[in-house]
Each structure stands twice: as C-alpha cells, then as structure tokens.
Amino acid sequence: MLKSMTGYGKAQAEINNVLITAEVKTLNSKYLELNLRLPKAYSDAEMEVRNLLSHLLVRGKANVVVEVQHLGQSSTHVDYNKELFAYYYSTLQQLADSVGASHDDLFRLALQQPEVAGSPVTEVGEEEWQLMHETIRMAVKQCDVFRAREGDALRMKLHGYASEISRLLQEVEKKDGERIASIRERLEKKMEELMSLEKLDRNRLEQEMFFYIEKLDISEEKVRLRTHLNYFEQTLKSADSNGKKLGFLGQEIGREINTIGSKANDATVQLLVVQMKEELEKIKEQSLNIL
C-alpha cells in the first residue's frame, strides 16, 4: 500500500483534569526532519518522544506539537522570575545609558526576555506520561490514515502514467518493424551503388553495414523497458510503501527511454519518446511524495 508523505493527524485525551493534545503535520522530504514542540513539564522526555516519532513516521518533514491544558485552572495564571527580571532591567539600563538612549521601553523589553514570565511547571505523574505517549501515537495513527488515503490517489496517478508509457512503447514496437525495413531498403540501395566502384573491399563494406544496423537496433532496450514497467506496476501493488524503489525504477525507465531515442534515428519514434519522457517526469515528481 502506497503512503504519501503528506499527512495530518490530531488526538486528544484527558486524565485527572489534564487535557493533552497532540498534533502531527507531515510533508515530503528525503529524510526524516522532525520539529518537536513539548510543554516545559515534558522536556525531560524529548529524546524518548523523538525516538518514538522516528520509528512511527519513518520519513518526511514532520511538525509535532504537544499541548497540555489543566482544566479548571485559570489559563491566564503566569509566574514571574523577579530576580531575573531585575537583572535584565538593570543590564538594559546600563546599555541605554552607555549610548544615551531613552529608558521608555526597558520595562517591556526586560519582561520579554527568556525565562522571565511563564506558566508554573507542575510535576508530571506516571499516568500522565503514559497518556501523553498514547495521545502522540493516536495522532500519528490519524496522520497515517491520511497518508494512506493520499497514497491511494498517488497510486492511481502513477499507474496511469506507467500505463501511458506502456501504450507508447507498443506504438514504438509497431513502428520499429517499419523502421528496420526502411533502413534495410536504404542500405541495400547504397550497397548496390558502392558495389559498382572499383577497388572496393566488399567484406569490409558488409562488416560496416552490419555494425551500423547493430547500432540502430533497440530490441534489448524495448525488452528492458517493458521489464522495468512491469516491475514498477508490481511495486505499486506491494503491501509496503517504498518511494525510494519507485524513484530508482523511474531512473531505470528513463535510461531505456533515452537510449531508444538516441538509437532510433526515426522522427516518429522520436516523437513517441518525447511523449514517454513527459509521462516519466510526472512519475518522478509524484514519486518524491511517496513514503
């Protein structure tokens, strides 16, 4: 099952008048980029939570916010560190006096300094720790559901792009028979002209003609491209979501398409190759957002 790296999940849980909210937002990224914001009371568990999220989210740019609300308490209650405020205020006064600046905004500036004002930190009980972990897991699960739904839409798109490349390859295969016949006819006429010349090494001419035809042959490229497309379809149906594998297969598909274009020496085939490249670019773009 394909999963998108774009997702959103939110969960809430309550225990002993403590409401815990966890929110998870994810976007596509080559690696896991985790931005975690926890209340101060939970800061000791940051590494533990990061390890948990790394295991659950796997890949993508993730923004995770955990908030705690103590029900029944005034949300406007704030503690002030008076000694720290006085230190900041005195330091700002000295700086202002050294440059002859006004003291008008010093109170506001000192109040805004780190650790001066904040909500009181309460001790976290074991049940609350466990509930926080469970809430985060529920939010990630909701995000995972979102990812799976988006992944299903991506699977349909990628299947359509690969199917179009397969259809265009069939057109190339039909045209290839005509192309080879046309090339052979031109070469036979050219050989008839050359055979009339004196001092002509006929064995060498036949070898050169053979090498020329070999360079124009795209049989192996067609077989490999068909194989890559079949494997791509199998990967889309796999139980695992593997965006890296799809990206790698996209590179292999592109390699065969480019080789067919460079060896074909035919305007119609070149046009079909251009159309295949257009579909391949869509595959590359969408594959970047797959987990």
Rank of each mutant, 00 (worst) to 15 (best):
residue 245 K to W: 05
residue 279 E to H: 02
residue 264 A to L: 03
residue 222 K to W: 04
residue 120 P to F: 07
residue 208 E to S: 02
residue 146 F to I: 08
residue 265 N to K: 14
residue 253 I to N: 01
residue 139 A to Q: 02
residue 46 E to F: 00
residue 173 E to V: 13
residue 154 L to Q: 09
residue 50 R to K: 12
residue 178 E to K: 03
residue 213 I to D: 05
residue 45 A to Y: 11
residue 212 Y to S: 09
residue 59 R to I: 05
residue 282 K to L: 08
residue 210 F to K: 06
residue 184 R to P: 00
residue 270 Q to Y: 09
residue 64 V to F: 00
residue 142 Q to C: 15
residue 160 G to R: 14
residue 23 E to W: 00
residue 208 E to A: 03
residue 270 Q to H: 12
residue 92 L to N: 09
residue 1 M to N: 06
residue 206 E to P: 00
residue 124 V to C: 10
residue 100 G to C: 00
residue 255 R to F: 00
residue 65 V to I: 11
residue 37 R to K: 09
residue 284 K to P: 00
residue 92 L to M: 06
residue 53 L to T: 04
residue 99 V to F: 06
residue 282 K to Q: 11
residue 217 D to H: 04
residue 90 S to R: 14
residue 108 R to A: 15
residue 203 N to S: 12
residue 162 A to T: 10
residue 183 I to V: 13
residue 230 N to E: 15
residue 144 D to V: 03
residue 260 I to Q: 03
residue 91 T to C: 07
residue 118 G to Y: 04
residue 177 G to F: 05
residue 212 Y to Q: 10
residue 284 K to G: 04
residue 86 A to R: 11
residue 261 G to N: 06
residue 10 K to S: 13
residue 110 A to L: 10
residue 290 I to E: 03
residue 141 K to P: 01
residue 109 L to F: 14
residue 273 V to D: 01
residue 186 R to T: 01
residue 128 E to W: 04
residue 285 E to K: 04
residue 89 Y to L: 15
residue 38 L to W: 02
residue 276 M to E: 08
residue 278 E to Q: 13
residue 265 N to Q: 14
residue 4 S to H: 11
residue 115 E to L: 15
residue 232 F to M: 04
residue 189 K to E: 08
residue 86 A to I: 00
residue 34 L to S: 02
residue 11 A to G: 13
residue 27 L to S: 15
residue 123 E to Y: 13
residue 200 L to H: 01
residue 249 L to A: 06
residue 265 N to L: 09
residue 29 S to P: 09
residue 255 R to H: 02
residue 46 E to I: 01
residue 212 Y to L: 12
residue 60 G to L: 00
residue 215 K to D: 12
residue 127 E to L: 15
residue 126 E to I: 10
residue 225 L to I: 07
residue 254 G to M: 01
residue 135 T to I: 10
residue 170 Q to Y: 11
residue 241 S to F: 07
residue 118 G to T: 03
residue 85 F to W: 07
residue 66 V to A: 03
residue 27 L to T: 11
residue 62 A to H: 02
residue 173 E to N: 15
residue 145 V to M: 14
residue 286 Q to K: 05
residue 19 L to F: 10
residue 45 A to L: 12
residue 243 G to V: 10
residue 175 K to W: 14
residue 121 V to C: 08
residue 37 R to W: 01
residue 278 E to I: 07
residue 261 G to T: 01
residue 11 A to D: 08
residue 13 A to G: 07
residue 274 V to H: 08
residue 143 C to P: 02
residue 185 E to K: 14
residue 246 L to T: 06
residue 179 R to L: 00
residue 14 E to T: 15
residue 167 R to Y: 11
residue 192 E to R: 10
residue 117 A to F: 04
residue 124 V to I: 15
